[in-house]
Write a protein that binds this DNA or RNA. Structure first.
Lengths: 209, 209
DNA sequence: CACTGTAGTAATCGACTGATAACATGTCAA
DNA sequence: TTGACATGTTATCAGTCGATTACTACAGTG
């Protein structure tokens, strides 16, 4: 009704049986893509199921509820960010910000990862989900301060830019690149090193994902 | 089901009849609060109606569809931000950033205004809504560049901080102020001048709004 | 081969929600 | 006053969605 449902149908055609552990991971990957494209409430468990190539009741049974599934999705997303940061940390302090920034935009290759992070930051009002989202953000902040050696002010700037990236991604500004002044300028002048990655991996405005 | 519905029941007890124009504005105010608290898809037209003190069908009839209502809400929100920026612009260049920043956080007094802006930046995937959201963001950017005299780099930093504010608001980090390290640090060290306003007007993590 | 636990589906239900239709009430001009 | 339009409601529907139930099929073990 509100969303022009585009059911993509089993992206990774799932063969016969699979171990529950593998199936869980596969569903989490699919769910990340769908939740990232349609937000938490806008996503149906059926869409997740079809994206993963399984039946809708099976998704529910594996994760209990849609909420629990979403919580696992954002926890996994924050874990991936943290892991990417950790791997990008070693190196000269001068380029530390660029390295971590590149590690963040590098996550664009994992469909829905960044949109899910961005979307989770708007869900502080939900009791359980809000708790997990705050904890996820906090874990990144503490990493930057404790392990990364960022000062409070450096951390502020770093995270601020990260949130701007989230916005660019969320708004699908990349679709207007080259045709609209603001979009072109934001991307071209402000994220010169990321623009290629962003443009390559991001859905355009007219695509559901 | 997913959201612990807390129907606030007619905040501004609407007396008898009202001109359609006033009623529209009243509903837009209420809708801003509800959409801001529960996101677009998470909000029902019935909640908006009860918050405004009218019946659900009347909301639908006045605005056509829920989507059109939401579009008016975010357009109005971006208009308010632009207006606040415009009023805060005159003055010395040195404090320009602080003035505009204060104008932005000052919008916290209008319930849902900032969350609605923040939420709209995640809806680039929706055809109509995405168009309006991109146009809204673009209007702010062009204001900063053309009327505000910001360089591209200054604009980037300014908007990045704004998006970080959105995140703080969306995550309800203010609820953890004083009890959690990250929340306290982000608010205390990074937004020293805004922390009072934020803490005064923002819903806590356990409140729906 | 039989047994058993795990992977998976089809069918279906109850609650919710946006929208519509039909009806009611107030207000103002002539 | 009366008609006519604008303001507003109650009742209700049709579609959607998360969840439950009951069933099926496969794989490994003894």
């Amino acid at each position: 009704m509100t969303v022009e449902a585009a059911a993509p149908a089993a992206q990774n055609a799932a063969p016969g049986r699979m171990s529950a552990v593998d199936r869980r991971e596969q569903i989490l990957v699919a769910a990340t893509a769908v939740f990232g494209a349609k937000t938490y409430v806008g996503t149906t468990t059926d869409e997740v199921a079809r994206a993963a190539g399984v039946s809708q009741p099976y998704v529910v049974r594996l994760f209990g509820t849609k909420e629990k599934l979403y919580i696992e999705v954002i926890q996994r997303a924050y874990d991936h960010v943290l892991e990417a940061f950790r791997q990008a940390l070693p190196g000269p302090v001068e380029t530390r910000g660029e390295r971590l920034g590149a590690a963040y935009t590098g996550l664009l290759v994992e469909r829905g990862m960044l949109p899910v992070i961005a979307g989770s930051t708007a869900m502080g009002g939900e009791a359980e989900i809000g708790r997990v989202a705050r904890e996820g953000f906090s874990s990144l902040w503490r990493f930057a301060r404790d392990e990364g050696g960022f000062s409070a002010d450096e951390a502020r700037t770093f995270f601020a830019i990260g949130m701007l990236i989230n916005t660019v991604v969320g708004l699908r500004l990349t679709g207007d690149y080259g045709t609209e002044v603001t979009a072109t300028e934001v991307l071209d002048e402000c994220f010169p090193d990321a623009v290629e990655k962003v443009r390559a991996f991001l859905p355009r405005a007219d695509e559901p994902w």
